[in-house]
Write a protein that binds this DNA or RNA. Structure first.
Lengths: 185, 185
DNA sequence: GTCTATAAAGTGATAGAC
DNA sequence: GTCTATCACTTTATAGAC
């Protein structure tokens, strides 16, 4: 590996930022070129097609998101508190979820490879939350349902915040959920 | 009004379908032309720009969605049961919410007029659910938070269903929410 | 491994005949 | 009110020099 390899890394990092800001479909290879500072032929050397660049960038974003979630869910303290810590974690609500938003990105959902990356993220996230709720003493079926509710509240919170233009909308959704969660043993 | 006015109606109906299927940004006026069967100059006669067509189509979709929600929330029966009826209503989970998906559509969020239509929908929807939960006996603050949670569960349910490719994911999120709602007076 | 130049197709929009 | 033809621009991608 030569030192020029970091052109590839800069391309992936730039693509991640642009994808998060405006989606995969609306982001052109040209924009990635301009924002990253690498040359035109250079991009197509490392990533022959937009698909290849997208797989690398979306894969990296998903890895980061899953790592953050597991950090919350496998922290110290009672299992229920760890789930509450996960849903309460401060988020850039107005930006939307970097992974969740991809589910309405046609360029992603029409691409088998990309869609699979998004699917794997949510399957693993739901499994992790379910396992934590099971640790909290819930029976399997209730743990699975409530894990879906928890993740849905976060994803829906992003939608409400973006729709209303107010980050408080997400916090209200989380507050309502946590209040109910604490009252239902 | 001449009978030729229905060219306009066909354009709006076709745009609604295409927007729901693939989003506003990725839908070109050309596609709307082809799918609706009207001529090229005809579209630009009724809607000088894509923005104008989008405002008409998104406005119609929002009106339909709000009407459906109010039908659930203002039905007969106890207030709490009406909220449960709203979140439980069968939905095309894999298609995504026709309005909620617009919050990650850059073509919508970058357009002041379109974004305002989406904002108004969610503000009104949240107000309607909040009012119903107040009728159910909840204090104002709790009613507002729980209304946000309810709408977030539906929106997040769509995200989970699309992400996992399984409509059951949305039903699980709703089941978890309803179970908690019934246990917390 | 990176560059410039360019191709083929699609985009939103306009012109002007009918 | 509707038509065909066309414009200026952007898209993804390739060619071939360095």
């Amino acid at each position: 590996m030569t030192t020029t390899t970091d052109a590839r890394e800069r391309l992936v990092a730039t693509a991640q930022e642009l994808f998060a800001a405006q989606g995969v479909g609306p982001t052109s290879p040209r924009q990635v070129l301009a924002a990253s500072g690498v040359g035109q032929g250079s991009l197509y050397h490392h990533f022959p097609t937009k698909h290849d660049l997208a797989v690398a960038a979306v894969g990296a974003t998903v890895d980061e998101a899953l790592t953050a979630a597991r950090r919350d869910l496998e922290a110290g303290g009672p299992a229920l508190e760890r789930v509450i810590g996960y849903v309460r974690r401060p988020r850039e609500a107005l930006a939307g979820c970097k992974v969740g938003r991809l589910t309405s990105d046609q360029a992603v959902m029409d691409d088998d490879g990309l869609r699979d990356v998004v699917t794997a993220y949510f399957v693993r996230l739901l499994d992790a939350v379910t396992a934590t709720l099971r640790d909290a003493g819930l029976p399997e079926a209730e743990a699975r349902d409530r894990a879906h509710t928890a993740v849905a509240v976060v994803q829906g919170g992003y939608v409400l915040a973006r729709a209303t233009g107010d980050p408080e909308a997400m916090r209200a959704a989380v507050r309502g959920f946590v209040a109910m969660l604490k009252e239902t043993p």
